[in-house]
Computed example of a mutant assay.
Amino acid sequence: MDNMILGRYIPGDSIIHRLDPRSKLLGMILLIVISFWANNPLTNVILFTVSGVFILLSKIPLTFFIKGLQSMFFLIAFTTIFQLFFITGGEVLYEIGFIKITTYGLEQAGIIFCRFVLIIIFSTLLTLTTMPLSLATAVESLLGPLKRFKVPVHEIGLMLSMSLRFVPTLMDDTIRIMNAQKARGVDFGEGNIVQKVKAMIPILIPLFATSLKRADSLATAMEARGYQGGHGRSQYRQLSWMRKDSVALVLVGILGLVLFLLKS
């Protein structure tokens, strides 16, 4: 739980921090799409090099990105191992029973591993350099044209903002409840997988209860302040699209074109 950094913002004055949140959000979406085109060693080396440059430009310590990868370790490991052992094709390198490790399976496992790592790095870079409220405002702004089709754009942005805001709070509550249960003698590391799942019940029940209480308090506070939805509401933080935002998106587009031409 200590490795969960989703929703955490690291204040800074780097060039990436100063970009408009809309350009960062669009850039991250483009980079995630581009990462699916990286299907050979050359394209993956290019993308990892670019991600390293982004990390340096953000001036955020590498440890934060490592924590982001650690929080997704089991998902990455499970998907990679599944690709390695159960994807057939190519020359058989090792075989035991129904499990085969082939050259094609090894290649696909490497591609999936790199893809997961890149997506996590790009999404972590976005959340660490963008305030949750600014990110929600960016989503609301980008979805603005959908208002013509009666899509509740403001409510979507509000839900996103509150979700990102309370993710660290929920993680802190989880750690607090786990420590309290450990003090009462609960051991979360012993037993088989079934016993470990059962040991999580003393965490989930109080966490669910505190989440409901917090949601009720938040709703009461919003009603007390006269919240009536997005109609006619102004924004305290005004977004400003500048030349550097356009340049950043153009560079990401050029990167995508290069990788599209180099993909297998």
Rank of each mutant, 00 (worst) to 15 (best):
Val197Trp: 09
Gly191His: 02
Thr220His: 10
Ile111Asp: 04
Lys147Trp: 08
Leu133Phe: 12
Thr210His: 03
Pro168Asp: 12
Ala219Ser: 15
Leu164Gln: 01
Leu218Lys: 00
Leu207Glu: 11
Ile201Val: 14
Ala138Trp: 00
Leu128Val: 08
Gly189Lys: 14
Phe122Arg: 00
Pro152Ser: 02
Asp172Lys: 05
Leu128Thr: 04
Ile201Met: 12
Thr137Val: 12
Glu140Asp: 12
Leu212Arg: 02
Leu118Arg: 00
Asn192Ile: 04
Pro132Thr: 03
Ser134Met: 14
Met200Gly: 07
Leu106Ser: 13
Leu212Glu: 09
Ile201Asn: 01
Arg148Ile: 13
Met131His: 15
Glu155Ala: 10
Met131Glu: 15
Gly185Thr: 11
Gln195Gly: 14
Ala138Ile: 01
Arg165Ser: 13
Met222Cys: 08
Lys198Phe: 11
Asp173Ile: 00
Ile121His: 08
Arg214Phe: 11
Arg176Ser: 15
Ser141Pro: 02
Lys150Pro: 00
Gly185Leu: 09
Ile205Asp: 09
Leu133Ala: 14
Ala209Ser: 14
Leu125Asn: 08
Gly144Glu: 15
His154Val: 07
Leu118Ala: 10
Val153Lys: 00
Ala183Val: 02
Asn179Tyr: 06
Gln181Ile: 01
Cys114Glu: 06
Leu212Thr: 07
Leu204Asp: 03
Cys114Ser: 14
Thr129Ala: 06
Gly191Met: 05
Asp216Ile: 03
Cys114Val: 09
Asp172Val: 04
Lys182Met: 14
His154Ile: 06
Val194Tyr: 12
Leu142Ser: 06
Lys182Asp: 05
Phe166Gly: 03
